[in-house]
Design a binder for these strands. Sequence first.
DNA 1: GAGCACTGC
Length: 818
Amino acid sequence: MADNPYLAYLKSPQRGVTSSTNSDREPLFDFLSRKVKGRQVRKAMDHQLNPFTKQPHSAQYRKILEDRRVLPVYAQMDPFLKIFSKNQIMIIVGETGSGKTTQIPQFVAYSDLPHTKGKIVACTQPRRVAAMSVARRVADEMDVQLGKHVGYSIRFEDMTDPGTTFLKYMTDGVLLREAMNDKELSRYSTIILDEAHERTLATDILMGLLKDLARRRPDLKIIIMSATLDALKFQSYFSLHQPGEDPSPAPLFKVPGRTYPVEIFYTQEPEPDYVEAAIRAVLMIHRVENPGDVLLFLTGEEEIEDACRKIRLEADDLIRTNPSSVGPLMCIPLYSSLPPQQQQRIFDAAPKPIQEGYPPGRKVVVATNVAETSLTIDGIVYVVDPGFSKQKVYNPRIRVESLIVSPISKASAQQRAGRAGRTRPGKCFRLYTENDFNSGLDEQTHPEILRSNLANTVLQLAKLGIKDLVRFDYLDAPAPETLMRALELLNYLAALNDEGELTPLGSIMAEFPLDPQLAKMLIVSPEFKVSNEILTITAMLSVPTIWVRPLHQRAAADQAKTLLTVPEGDHLTMLNVYNTYLQNKSNHSWAWNNFVSARALAQAENVRAQLLGMMERFKIECISLEDERKRNLGIQQTLVRGFFMQVAHREGEAGTYLIVKDSQVVALHPSCDLDFRPEWVLFNEFVLTKRPYIRTVTAIQPEWLLEFAPAYFDLSTFPDDETKRALQRVAKKHRNSTSTRNESNKSDMRTDTQSTSAQAKPKAPKKKRNKKRRPKKGGSGLVYECTSRRQRDKSVERFSDYFDPALGFTESDYDRSD
DNA sequence: GAGCACTGC
């Protein structure tokens, strides 16, 4: 640090003494960290030299600076710097177009002078594209090379230069991951959480961490930036506690937006069929409104494709019956599972008139919620908002996340309407009554933390050193059962011990960017010598579906899939698809010819490489078994090690299944390729659509359940049904043959366990284990599961303080049916 | 015999 010219300068006795020669050479001449005034910043911005590179400013810099000067936030530089100087935490509210995302971090950099302290100013974004594109823009604005002084960091891509980068845009998830290994976030001088109103899981957890960290690190400044006016909530959450005084809310800084007015129209009566009403609204706009493109919000792919078809038909009809009254209409679907090339079509220009002098054409984009936050379409003048979207909900009782079409919030409706006023004044047609808007809609969309399975989050919190997960200072606390379910799962996976503390295994699991079940499975996979294969399967399960099934080629697609299918189950089929893809990599049409998504496979390759790097870091061997039969068996057994809580048993001959321990009746999803119906199956996913289905399914042997997860498969905790009786029969047989089988197993599959799980091996359990469990052979992953009933029940009692009787949550939900 | 709103590590 001694050779840092800025630091030397700040320490020099002449500091602050004005001298024209000094300030000519040094744009930040009289700057005092965090006491900088707007006048000083503006002068530095106008300086001939770039203060960060010492190079003369380019012509492009000056041109961009002119654009920046008209941003609403630019005019507020002085008050912003004043509040920033005086406070550790502040809240900023700025509507779209205020320029807060690009300008505030730069203002902070000029005041904080992170480069003089070897620190970084961080600005988080919920989405990767935003982090990348904003960083690129800001690098241009500051006249520096992207990845040098200004950079970004997202999964798979760290575009920063350690030691040089002092302004870093990043996804909220990346910052959360950094916090796991540096709890003080010591490299940052200021952390800005942008788009906080979106309330992503990562942002919510970060807010809790930062609130706590602010007390321990008085030198850390925190800025929460939000678009909507729920700022009051942030203000009181981050209120300041001075000793002996009442808490005062964190200071609020408001920036006006820069959008055009949007006129709102409501229906007189509620619409019984919103899709039909939406189509009518679009055609009405097309017939009677001035030129300008239309954006219609619907909920999903099927609905969108259907609506597009109908709109096109009707529009063709209109132009055929009266060609001079309306122009041609172009209808474009938009949802995220569309290939990027087709998504690009939303930027196409509206069609030209069919002949000169005839009405101009119009573009209609029919989109999901992607168009609400992620993608901005220029030129939209009319928005049609039926008021619904698909939202994730989590039901902890049945441990299932599902997508439900639900009414949107007021904030969401306002966001949608705003999309009509980006380039000129617009109109928004809401297909619900004004009364419904005022009294029927929630103010804000429920934050993600209230709608998600929190297994992953709880593991991360444990890794972050949060001792009491239930009393963590959440902005919105999740339902107690949701936390219970997460704790329960992590305990069964041996990531948390019975005291709810992180085990060494859990500590490694938390490092992997995977669901806990997948992380567990991957970490123990060398014990079965199939880690190479499990790695591939894990990567394949982490990307969107690889199967492509075009509407008009369904039979061909299904036939192609049959050729890739492995009879034992979908997991092995995925492995086969990946390997076949690698073998045919030189053939660029292979994916297309075989109806699989090249994009998803490339993503899987990427994920696989990242996970392989992490396995190396934790010295988890990547190995295969030669013999195909043994290999497949090993894979199936390893799957059980992670997913023993997701097992179903066939009921009679009808072909339906019962989820073990839950007694939930399910059917195999039609996409499953098990042509025989195995008695016992393990599934990756439970989906609740028209009926309950299990998806991505593999046949297993019931003995494995008793062997690998004895705590979970303690039959005395099971409901009295056919599944229990079947397991009892298996257990009896199992006991009779245990001694001989164990011997052969040891020599067959488990020879190298010591080396692979040396780091993951937890301390030996304190209490005596039940007899039926495997003997305490060193290194066996089984020790992770060796939790006696008594121990588990004790832990449940600890958690039971947080049950809410009003929710009808009973003891039997927690398998305490003694 | 059916579907994947949207992000993120």
